[in-house]
Design a protein around this nucleic acid. Structure first.
Length: 220
DNA sequence: ATCCCGAGGG
DNA sequence: CCCTCTGGAT
C-alpha cells in the first residue's frame, strides 16, 4: 500500500469513528493495566464482565494485594488463562507498591519488567493512559496489517516496526484503535466482511466469503 | 515450540 | 465439533 492509499485508509476509518477508545472498562491507569493484562487471548466483553465487579471493589495495587491470589481467581474464573493471570496481577501489584510508589510507571522498560506485562501490554498502557504514539500489535492488528498490505510482517514486532514507519500524522495516536476496531468488527479472522468494508478498494485481499444476500440465494 | 485456558460463535 | 479472542513466559 503506497503512502496516498495509507492516508486514505486511515482517513476513512477516522471518518467512521472520530474518537476511538478502548472497549475495555477501567477507572484509572492501574485498572487499565490490569484489564489489559487480563485480556490476553480473551475477548474484551468477557474481561469486562469479570472486571466490573472486581474494579468496584479493587482499584489500587494495595487493595489487590489485600484481595490475594485466590480472591482474585474467584473474580476471573470465567476468563481464559486465569491461573497465570491471577498470579501475575498479584505479583505485578506488589511490584508497583515496592518499586513505583503504587503508581503505574510511564516508562516502557519499567512496564515490561512487571510480571505478565510484555511489549503489547506496555504499548497499550503507554497509548491509552499516557498518550504515547505507540502501536500495540495484537491478533487483530497483526491480521489486518498482513491481510490488507498496510503493514505486512512475519512477527508482531515486524508489523509494529512497519506501522511505526508507515502511519502518518495525524493518525498515529489513534491508529491502534482504528485498526483493532476494524479487525474486530469488519476485517474478521474467519469471515471478513469485505462487502461492507470502507477500505476494500485499497486492500490487496480478495474476498473469499460472499455477501449475506448471495449466501442466502445459494446455500451450502 | 509449547503451555496456560474459559466463553462465545459458526 | 473447531476457531478465535487486544499474549507472555519458559
Amino acid at each position: 500500500m503506497n503512502r496516498a492509499a495509507i492516508v486514505e485508509f486511515f482517513a476513512r476509518l477516522a471518518e467512521a469513528n472520530p474518537a476511538p477508545e478502548t472497549e475495555l472498562e477501567y477507572v484509572n491507569a492501574y485498572t487499565l493495566l490490569v484489564a489489559v493484562a487480563l485480556s490476553a487471548q480473551a475477548t474484551d466483553v468477557g474481561v469486562n464482565k469479570a472486571t466490573r465487579a472486581l474494579f468496584a471493589e479493587v482499584d489500587t495495587p494495595a487493595k489487590m494485594v489485600a484481595l490475594g491470589e485466590e480472591g482474585l481467581k474467584a473474580h476471573i474464573k470465567t476468563i481464559g488463562l486465569f491461573n497465570t493471570k491471577a498470579k501475575n496481577v498479584i505479583a505485578l501489584s506488589q511490584t508497583l507498591i515496592e518499586r513505583h510508589g503504587g503508581e503505574v510507571p510511564e516508562d516502557r522498560a519499567a512496564l515490561e519488567a512487571l510480571p505478565g506485562v510484555g511489549r503489547k501490554t506496555a504499548n497499550v498502557v503507554l497509548n491509552c493512559a499516557f498518550g504515547h504514539e505507540t502501536f500495540a500489535v495484537d491478533t487483530h492488528i497483526f491480521r489486518v496489517g498482513n491481510r490488507t498490505g498496510l503493514a505486512p510482517g512475519k512477527t508482531v514486532l515486524a508489523v509494529e516496526q512497519k506501522l511505526e514507519k508507515r502511519v502518518p500524522q495525524p493518525f498515529r495516536l489513534h491508529a491502534h484503535h482504528w485498526l483493532i476496531l476494524h479487525g474486530r468488527y469488519i476485517c474478521k479472522a474467519r469471515t471478513p466482511e469485505c462487502w461492507r468494508c470502507p477500505v476494500a478498494d485499497l486492500c490487496r485481499y480478495r474476498p473469499k466469503t460472499p455477501p449475506p444476500a448471495e449466501r442466502a440465494r445459494k446455500p451450502g
